[in-house]
Nucleic acid binder design. Structure first.
Lengths: 212, 212
DNA sequence: CCAAAAGTGTTTTCAGTACACCCATGC
DNA sequence: GCATGGGTGTACTGAAAACACTTTTGG
């Protein structure tokens, strides 16, 4: 029996969740988009397979993964029996800048507008997104996702998507600032309409709180 | 490569978490206590292996399982390479009454006083307990765990163990009763020291709230 | 009547919510 | 100067926390 690891790499761009997918070049599911995956060899742990997968296929390292569910339906792969184990990571946009994205082989997709997906990867992605939506409420995850120079309206937009509800701007600011996690950089955002927003960074040492 | 499912069946007795373990009869780890487990055959899903395991080894059915983590360290089994996938269930004490418990082959152990465990099962149990401690805060889980005729001090004791803090009796009652989940049966507990406690049952239809 | 544990009510405190106006920029 | 989005303060409401005495049983 074979085991594969499936990796969901998620990020946030303009307050929207995006996931990294590869286009499959061979049958079955040729031309469909799929999660990066790798068969686990006998002398590898799952974590080693995941790291191998992202470094060989994507050239990424330093990502941290969270384990998700195992998928074991007998027909999930039409050609052979493979049990898939999902891993999830949240990456800041800076980390993903090294990737060469295009329409043909590798791209980021909004989780609300996914392309045609191969295998059972649609179900796997849905589960991964749920994991991340819980994790995003921890301040340490936010810190990883927003390395520096973010604005409060950006973070608020993300929470509104995660929580599927609008939040009052004043109350959001009050609560977020009271958590004592971030500090002003002194600069302001540029290039948007309207009044520029203050830029913030996370403090060096923060407590790992649960927000919202 | 082989895959096994490992099942952690947890229950609460006298406000304390207990886990069901079997004593291993053969080498390696002969005489140690281990989680019930089963190798996943090629024509089985993980869920089928779990159900098979609990029905053949324990004679239990109707348990619902939650998937936990996969454990894949190369040396987690000294005799062969096996990747283990953990499943967790919470059972009410009535369901476990059919089991024949003894010191030799099958018993319940408080998670704070575990016996000598084989393989990496100690780590697996610790992870399972964390899963259950989150799940126990949902009212539907509580309802499964306390079929009828429980007292509020019992539930409070459990929460104090889960949350690792003492709770004020008056505030606990106020909050729990306001959640509108339970009703008095009219009877009282017997056989303890002090004033008997009122017995409660969960209402037929309850909302699945998050408590505490 | 004494010990042990369960039941009950009031006050305070703090977080959450609702809400309206002013401010800094680009055009 | 106007449109756009960002920043700020205040009053209200409801849940959580702190707290002490009475009640019911068994011995």
């Amino acid at each position: 029996m074979q085991i594969e690891t499936l990796v969901s790499i998620l990020t946030i761009i303009d307050g929207e969740f995006k996931i990294l997918l590869m286009r499959k070049k061979t049958e079955p599911y040729k031309g469909y988009w799929v999660l990066p995956s790798m068969i686990v060899e006998k002398d590898m742990t799952l974590e080693e397979a995941v790291n191998d997968c992202v470094s060989s296929k994507l050239g990424l390292n330093k990502l941290e993964f969270e384990q998700g569910l195992a998928f074991s339906a007998l027909d999930r792969n039409p050609s052979k029996r493979v049990i898939g184990i999902s891993f999830v990571s949240i990456a800041d946009s800076r980390t993903l800048e090294t990737l060469e994205l295009d329409e043909e082989s590798l791209n980021l997709f909004s989780i609300d507008r996914l392309p045609k997906l191969g295998y059972d990867h649609s179900a796997i992605i849905m589960e991964s997104v749920e994991i991340i939506k819980h994790k995003i409420r921890q301040s340490m995850t936010l810190k990883k996702l927003f390395p520096s120079d973010f604005t409060l309206p950006e973070i608020q937009k993300m929470y509104e998507q995660v929580l599927k509800q609008d939040l009052d701007r004043r109350n959001f600011r009050k609560k977020f600032l009271k958590a004592d996690l971030i500090e002003e950089t002194g600069d302001k955002s540029i290039g948007n309409n309207g009044r520029p927003a203050k830029l913030y960074r996370f403090k060096e040492e923060i407590e790992d709180k649960l927000l919202f």
